[in-house]
Design a protein around this nucleic acid. Sequence first.
DNA 1: ATTATTTTTTAGCCTTGCCTAAAATATTCT
DNA 2: AGAATATTTTAGGCAAGGCTAAAAAATAAT
Lengths: 221, 221
Amino acid sequence: MKSSKSVQDYLKRVYELTEGGAPANTNDLARELNVKPASVTGMIQKLAAQKPPLVQYQKHQGVTLTPSGRRAALEVIRHHRLLETWLVQTLGYAWDEVHEEAERLEHVISEDLERRIDAALGHPTHDPHGDPIPSADLKIPPDDSIPLSALKSNRSAVVQRVASQDAALLRHLDQLGLVPGVQIAAGERSPFDNNLVVVVKKKTRVLGLSVTSKIFVKENN
Amino acid sequence: MKSSKSVQDYLKRVYELTEGGAPANTNDLARELNVKPASVTGMIQKLAAQKPPLVQYQKHQGVTLTPSGRRAALEVIRHHRLLETWLVQTLGYAWDEVHEEAERLEHVISEDLERRIDAALGHPTHDPHGDPIPSADLKIPPDDSIPLSALKSNRSAVVQRVASQDAALLRHLDQLGLVPGVQIAAGERSPFDNNLVVVVKKKTRVLGLSVTSKIFVKENN
DNA sequence: ATTATTTTTTAGCCTTGCCTAAAATATTCT
DNA sequence: AGAATATTTTAGGCAAGGCTAAAAAATAAT
């Protein structure tokens, strides 16, 4: 049976919060879902009680996804990222404008529409932010990028991904040309505040840690 | 405040059922909405109690839309018809495949997306079935078509609209070439069963009342 | 004009998913 | 360790939107 919008949202957030390996905790989920912690406990208990269970859960020990839960989460994420790509490529949306729209559409599109969008776009592997789009069989391509904040001085790299849905930040980066696919070079790094000098499209910029930690790059050769 | 999917569905059905002028009754609404009559009564009472009320309602006398309710209904219908047009024109859907998809999408698209689709399609006035698309200010173009079943013998006309969402019927009509825009000519009519001989694209067909009553045409000059 | 039948409404209940307040458990600090 | 603090869970409620069963109203039939 198809899960509700709420359930899909919970699974998606658990997926995101457990990408680092550690289980997700109630408070973080509550914050991400704009819901009270007590509500999270309630929902998590239901998800863990389903047959088959969608999450693994022991009280006071956080939540992880079961294989079923992970599949359901990836299905939603595939919808989301295909939709974002589609809105940008066919309706001229900017990359900072598509998140909320996709957030609503992702829960209602059919598998048929999913396939048609996928085909119309030529089976894209990454969305406008550079996030990988799970394939039809829900595989995710491995990610070997590193945060720009970890790039060594005097090395060059290609921007792979911008891990933010903050519209203001995205517009700012777009302005600077800091979008997926772009070639950059790292210069001096301040040891005090971690500010980094970066050359993008012949222009020299200084970026703070709050920015460089969200830009993921792949070092050249 | 934006109304829920349920409320939008109720308003849309009331709109459709009252197009003939008469108020809609509980049973018809229940059937259209796949809900029990008792549930309809409950919801209608809530809609009539809102400030401003969305429906006009007196017990045992059926339901009509207030101006606010009508506006809300037309907004949803605009979404639905723009979406159907979009799916057909940009993703290669057939006209019998789009109804259910649009039925779910219509409730979640933003006004921004509505505008972008409208613009991308060149502000279409009719959907793939020939139904009029309410304009941005929710006006509906007047309809001067008549059912094919009422077309006089030996007159020719242009198909304007096919008033059905039955996929099998739509596929059949598509086969026959009986789609909006097509030129047809009426021949003999059987006085017993109302079967009508029609010439479409040089081919002669005999159509029953269940078909001719759903095809709306405009007689040539 | 009563009775019978159909239609509509009321009454009471259920599920989902959220809330607040209180209780229980963990964690941190001295 | 024990107290103070922070986090998490339980308990009890609420609103939306369905349902069934019973009551009431309208319509039809004798």
